[in-house]
Amino acid sequence: MNSHYYEFDTQWIIKLLGTLIAFMVGGALVLRFAAPILPSSRNTWDMDRTIMAHQADASGRANDADILLIGDSSCLMNIDASIASEHLGKKVLNLGAVSFLDVEMFGNLVKRYLESCSKSPDTIVLVTHPDFLRRSSASRSHVAWMEHYLAGRDDLSRRRNWKSIDQWLGAHILQGRILKYLPRPLSVEFGQQFGFTHDLETYMHQHGGSALDPRTLDAEKLTGSREYRISSPNKKAASLFALTIPDNSRLFIALTPLPESFVNAQFSDNLEAIRKEWATTLSADRELAALPFSMPDELFASKTHLAPAAVEDYTIRFAESLK
């Protein structure tokens, strides 16, 4: 028995699908040609991109901070710049971004900041977590996103190959130039703490560039190696980072803490050696040695971030160590 009876022939199918494909190609071309006259691209589609866009914008604004903080997400989440400012009586700006970036990108942000300010900060502090130091590579998509954003181009940070139909269609143009006005809900705990992407930016703006991690640490789920070191890409990038520091600014380095239950017996000695090596590689003026390498589990939101309740005390300890 025949399987199917078709009421149409191949020509009809080609016409049907061909029209659809022609419309898609037409739409993609319209988007590309219209892009220059559309609003500038700012694709803050999720939390990471919102944070990166905020810090990139902040690095391009004249701020004239006395103390500039730069680093990974532990810099962003563990130190509240507004509390530090109040405690020190000096203007503190936090440009800490996300851990998916690399030291080279931190250097680019500092460079951009110095170019847009009339005076250099007295102190630049590079704040990183030990997990960041041992990581051998950054997230390519995050770095690419930041590069595109700083260059004022549309976000093409996602996969770029023949399979990325979304980018062929110009989804990134729609996201960055039209839908940027739509606040996006943040993921569960961050959503409950901050609300939407726009609200997170407002919070960061009010707190000198700092944010908070509202999650609760589940110490039993902590995973990963307990051996720490500085990866060679980080060492290589550190010497380039050092070149961005102006002569009239001092470079300090700080390592952020880990939950106590995660660390082993040799941990403190090991971390002390790493901090020294990191300071030497960066030709840093000072290590913030008064800051602890580990803290009680209940003070953490995640392995790398402190809980909101612990941020104030930690920030004051941090500010004290700067004096």
């Binding site: 029209t19 659809l20 022609a22 419309f23 898609m24 739409g27 139909i165 979304d166 269609l169 110009g170 989804a171 729609l174 996201q175 839908l179």
Partner: peptide, 13 residues
């Protein structure tokens, strides 16, 4: 085709 294309664009976004 226009309406289907519009849907496809938003799906891709």
């Amino acid at each position: 085709a226009g309406l289907m294309t519009l849907c496809v664009f938003f799906i891709s976004v």
